[in-house]
């Protein structure tokens, strides 16, 4: 996982300090637990409701 994270960021051109690698691994492991709370079935019919306004902003 640490290698994957490092590789993803390196491919984007981001220099990651060595001591961040374990911290990032731990953070993303915690995030993975949060991701499990997302009920995919419930979200199926939900619009994402972005505030993009066709034709530009209100005048």
């Amino acid at each position: 996982m640490a290698f994957d994270i490092h590789e993803i960021l390196e491919k984007k051109g981001i220099i990651v300090p060595e001591h961040h690698q374990d911290m990032l691994k731990a953070q993303m492991a915690g995030f993975e637990e949060l991701r499990q709370t997302v009920n995919q079935e419930q979200l199926k019919d939900f619009d994402m409701a972005l505030t993009h306004i066709p034709g530009g902003e209100q005048k």
Partner: peptide, 16 residues
């Protein structure tokens, strides 16, 4: 750095 690791799918589902 954490923000750079989130996926497009994560972002869209968050908005849902």
């Amino acid at each position: 750095e954490v923000g750079e690791l989130m996926s497009g799918v994560d972002y869209v589902q968050s908005q849902q």
